[in-house]
Lab assay of single mutants.
Amino acid sequence: MKKYKITVYDEKTGEKHTIEIEMSEEELEELAKKLAEKHNVKVRIEKV
Rank of each mutant, 00 (worst) to 15 (best):
K42H: 07
I6A: 00
K34F: 13
K42Y: 03
S24Q: 08
A36P: 02
A36D: 04
E20M: 12
K5D: 00
T13A: 03
T18V: 13
E22D: 06
K12G: 08
D10G: 01
V43M: 02
L35S: 01
E11M: 14
M1R: 15
K5P: 00
K42G: 04
K5E: 01
Y9K: 02
A36N: 08
E29P: 05
A32N: 05
K16R: 10
V41G: 14
G14K: 05
D10L: 04
Y4R: 01
K38I: 11
K2R: 13
E30P: 04
K5F: 06
H39N: 09
E26R: 08
V41K: 07
K3W: 15
E37N: 11
K34V: 10
K38N: 14
K42T: 13
E26G: 10
K38M: 15
K12Q: 10
T13N: 05
H17D: 03
E27W: 05
Y9H: 04
E20Y: 15
I19D: 02
A36F: 13
E20T: 11
V43E: 01
K47T: 15
D10H: 06
K38G: 09
E20K: 04
M1H: 09
L31T: 04
M1Q: 08
E15Q: 10
I19M: 11
E26F: 10
L35G: 01
K34G: 06
E25I: 08
K42F: 03
H39A: 12
K34W: 15
K34P: 00
T18N: 03
V8L: 10
Y9Q: 04
E26P: 09
T18S: 07
K5N: 03
Y4N: 00
A32E: 08
E46H: 05
G14C: 07
M1G: 06
K3T: 06
E37A: 13
L28V: 14
M23D: 02
M1T: 10
E37W: 03
L31M: 09
K3S: 03
L28F: 09
E11V: 13
Y4K: 00
V48K: 05
L35D: 00
E46L: 02
E29G: 09
E46A: 05
D10E: 03
V43D: 01
R44Y: 10
I6T: 00
T13E: 02
L28E: 03
L35V: 04
G14Y: 03
T18P: 00
K47L: 15
I45P: 01
T13V: 02
E22G: 02
M23A: 13
K12W: 10
M23I: 14
Y4I: 01
N40F: 06
E37T: 13
Y4G: 00
R44C: 14
M23T: 09
K5A: 04
H17L: 10
M23K: 01
I6C: 03
E22P: 01
S24C: 12
L31A: 03
I21N: 01
K42S: 12
I6G: 00
L31P: 00
L28A: 11
T7L: 04
K34N: 08
K16Q: 14
N40A: 07
L28D: 00
N40H: 14
H39G: 15
I21H: 02
M23E: 01
K3Y: 08
E22F: 13
K47G: 09
R44F: 14
M1A: 09
V8Y: 12
R44I: 15
H39W: 03
K2Q: 14
R44E: 11
L28N: 02
E25H: 08
L31C: 09
M23W: 04
E26W: 14
H17S: 08
H17G: 03
R44M: 14
N40C: 10
V43G: 01
I21E: 03
K16N: 08
T7M: 05
L31Q: 02
D10W: 10
K34R: 10
T7D: 02
E29A: 10
A36I: 09
E30A: 11
H39E: 12
V41Q: 06
E37M: 13
K2G: 08
T18K: 03
E37Y: 05
K47F: 12
K42P: 04
E37P: 03
R44N: 08
E26N: 11
A36C: 11
T13P: 00
G14N: 04
I19G: 01
I21R: 05
K12L: 14
K34M: 12
Y9A: 01
T18W: 05
N40I: 05
V48P: 04
I21V: 13
Y4W: 12
E37S: 13
I45C: 04
Y9P: 00
K47R: 12
K33L: 08
K33W: 04
I6K: 00
K12S: 11
V48A: 06
E11I: 14
L28P: 01
E26V: 12
K33T: 07
N40S: 08
L35W: 11
E22T: 09
E22V: 09
I19C: 14
S24Y: 14
E20W: 14
I19T: 05
K33M: 09
E30C: 07
E46S: 06
V48T: 06
G14S: 03
A32W: 15
K16A: 12
T7Y: 10
E15I: 13
I21K: 05
I45K: 01
K16V: 15
E11C: 15
V43H: 02
L35H: 02
K33Y: 04
E20H: 10
K47E: 15
M1W: 06
E15H: 10
V41M: 12
K38W: 08
I45H: 02
A36L: 12
E11H: 10
L28C: 11
R44P: 01
N40G: 14
Y9F: 08
E27Q: 13
E29W: 15
E22M: 10
K3Q: 05
T13F: 03
V8I: 13
Y4S: 00
V43F: 03
E30V: 13
E29N: 11
V41E: 03
K33E: 06
I6E: 00
Y9G: 00
I21P: 00
E37V: 12
H17Y: 15
I45V: 07
I21D: 01
T13G: 04
K3C: 07
L31I: 05
K42D: 05
R44D: 08
A32M: 14
V48I: 12
E22N: 06
V48H: 05
A32R: 13
I19P: 00
K2V: 13
V48S: 06
N40L: 07
T13H: 03
M23S: 07
I6S: 00
T7Q: 03
I19E: 04
E37F: 06
K34C: 11
N40R: 07
A32G: 06
K2L: 12
L31R: 02
E30L: 12
E20F: 15
I45F: 05
G14A: 02
R44S: 14
Y9W: 15
K33S: 09
A36V: 08
K34I: 10
E27D: 12
S24N: 11
M23Q: 02
V48F: 02
K12N: 11
